[in-house]
Amino acid sequence: MSDQQQPPTGRPVLNGLVALLAVALGVGLILALVALVGSQVLGLGDDDGDAAGESTVRQSMYLPSPVETDEATGPLVTLHTEDPDEPAGSGDAETELPEDEPTTELTSEAAGEISLQALATSVASGERIYFSGVYPGGEGAILWVQRFENGDWADFPASVGVTNGTFSSYIFTGVSGVNRFRVVDRDSGTTSNEISVTVG
């Protein structure tokens, strides 16, 4: 009687293996579903299609570009090749260089000139006479004011300094009538144009 009541020893092991197999299959299915859903959400499956689309777009962009650049750079390259050829001794370069040289000489001559102007052409007696001007190449120079008196230019008790090629100041005079002024750089002997101001 006691031998018949004992359960067989093989069944609990078999039941345990079946349970483990069922759990493993369930976990595997769940992981597979999670991986599939994750790949679709992240768009991993469309990478090949996107890459193919991008490569197609790149190829379509690159195909016309070389043709257009070749056609556009044809004349541009000839224009650029003309520039290096000019100093190499071409006839056009020799004719253009002398044209540029006189312009440079004129500019250098103009650089030593003093241009003077008055803010107003008429002021009251004792009122300030504002003037300004440009003196290219005269950085740091001291310009002395002169007035035309008795047929000659006489020094006026005023001076102005040149900063950044320009200058400006003012003077007083009680002499009524038309007064003619100019400024002079005593170091270089350069004089400006004259200005006329009516006083009174």
Rank of each mutant, 00 (worst) to 15 (best):
1 M>A: 15
16 G>W: 12
17 L>M: 13
19 A>P: 00
19 A>S: 13
19 A>E: 12
23 V>T: 08
30 I>L: 12
31 L>V: 10
35 A>V: 08
38 G>A: 14
40 Q>L: 07
51 A>P: 00
52 A>E: 12
62 Y>C: 05
63 L>E: 14
70 D>A: 15
72 A>C: 03
74 G>T: 13
75 P>Q: 05
81 T>S: 15
83 D>G: 06
83 D>A: 13
84 P>K: 05
95 T>H: 12
96 E>G: 10
99 E>G: 10
100 D>K: 09
105 E>W: 07
113 E>I: 09
115 S>G: 02
115 S>A: 12
116 L>I: 04
123 V>C: 02
131 F>A: 04
133 G>R: 02
136 P>S: 05
137 G>T: 00
138 G>K: 02
143 L>W: 05
144 W>E: 14
144 W>A: 06
153 W>G: 08
156 F>M: 03
156 F>N: 02
157 P>Y: 05
157 P>W: 02
160 V>S: 10
163 T>D: 14
163 T>V: 13
164 N>M: 07
169 S>N: 15
169 S>P: 03
170 Y>G: 01
172 F>P: 03
174 G>S: 05
176 S>G: 10
177 G>F: 11
181 F>N: 11
181 F>L: 08
183 V>K: 06
185 D>I: 00
188 S>H: 10
195 I>V: 15
200 G>A: 10
